[in-house]
């Protein structure tokens, strides 16, 4: 690990001031950044600890839930407001990592975490356009069971690893960001970029900006999160689904669907939602919605199974939400 300085920011203003310095990075729980520093993939010269910033979890006037960027994952998942109002978010956070990691990891850091693509992580032995732009991608022709089936590019098929962000994408969450010229809100579904020919650019966050909070609008119906993985716990998703469903007179009045484990960003399934809105939730309707959603998919030999797996997981989750699995 390269030499690095460490400071704690007592306020957003202080964090903004210090993060403007070249080579400086914001530090949340450190579960991802410290690991990548030890591997030589991240090489900051200065760390600004932002865990003293807001960790408040509260309702805003418009009924949305406001979560401070420094709130720990475990605190958010355990909070009564989150468990009762947005169970899909609590379940998604609890599906991620281990209890130790969730105690450390912050909400802001979760948004900024980097891919667990093994070729990205293998600094010594693999080519990676995200780590070393222009060097090539060893995942494309390699072991790509854990890689993207949609949204990727010839330059990069790494998936976004977060469970929490999948639920946030489904709920139309907004990321509140502070910068030198004021604050702005970025929709979570826009916050992460698709790789295109610049997989090294991962989010819309500009250098010097600081994540202050995440706002999660209320959702009227039941919601749930289901994750399929190679072992029952403490593993990244092969496929995960966050869904919310409102049925009126036997038809879909409102629906939210987002997938994890299949794309370079939390994948909000707008096309599938549009296909299902107004329809009865039948297997034929779900199949048609999945066909629309994955029309542009680019599966590889190692991961083509994920499209069927995503459809079956969605079916099971919608059955659970509509009560028809009982």
């Amino acid at each position: 690990m390269n030499p690095v300085t460490y400071h704690r920011a007592a306020s957003v203003a202080q964090a903004l001031e210090s993060s403007a310095a070249p080579g400086h990075r914001l530090l949340g729980g450190g579960t991802n950044l410290v690991d990548l520093m030890r591997k030589g993939i991240e090489r900051p010269t200065g760390l600004i600890d932002v865990t003293q910033l807001s960790e408040t979890i509260a309702l805003a006037e418009d009924g949305s839930l406001l979560v401070g960027a420094a709130a720990r994952n475990s605190a958010v998942a355990a909070h009564p407001l989150v468990r009762s109002r947005t169970p899909m978010l609590a379940r998604a956070i609890l599906a991620g990592a281990s209890a130790q990691v969730r105690n450390m990891a912050t909400i802001g850091g979760n948004l900024m975490q980097r891919t667990r693509c093994l070729y990205f992580q293998d600094e010594a032995g693999s080519r990676c356009n995200k780590r070393d732009p222009g060097s090539g991608c060893d995942a494309y022709g390699g072991f790509n069971r854990y890689h993207a089936v949609i949204g990727g590019s010839p330059a990069c098929i790494a998936v976004h690893p977060s469970d929490m962000c999948v639920a946030l994408a489904a709920f139309d969450a907004r990321v509140r960001v502070a910068g030198a010229s004021g604050t702005r809100a970025i929709a979570l579904v826009d916050f992460h970029r698709l790789p295109g020919d610049r997989p090294d650019l991962e989010t819309l966050l500009e250098p010097g900006e600081v994540i202050e909070a995440v706002e999660i609008p209320a959702f009227a119906g039941p919601s749930a999160y289901r994750k399929v993985r190679d072992r029952a716990s403490y593993a990244f998703a092969l496929v995960s689904v966050a869904a919310g469903l409102v049925i009126e007179e036997g038809r879909v009045a409102d629906i939210r669907i987002a997938f994890g484990g299949i794309a370079p960003k939390p994948w909000r399934a707008f096309r599938a939602e549009a296909a299902l809105r107004g329809a009865a939730v039948t297997q034929a309707a779900i199949d048609a919605a999945m066909a629309a959603e994955f029309a542009d998919a680019a599966p590889l030999p190692g991961n083509a199974f994920k499209i069927d797996l995503a459809g079956r997981t969605l079916s099971a989750l919608l059955a659970e939400l509509s009560g028809s699995d009982r």
Partner: peptide, 27 residues
């Protein structure tokens, strides 16, 4: 593992279980 995968380094910080390998002492 020294990379947050195994839990052998688990300690309690202010009563919460954390991974000491991924915690900087300064934190």
């Amino acid at each position: 593992c020294n990379q947050g995968a195994c839990g052998a380094c688990t300690v309690l910080v202010d009563g919460a279980r954390v991974l000491s390998c991924l915690t900087l002492a300064a934190q």
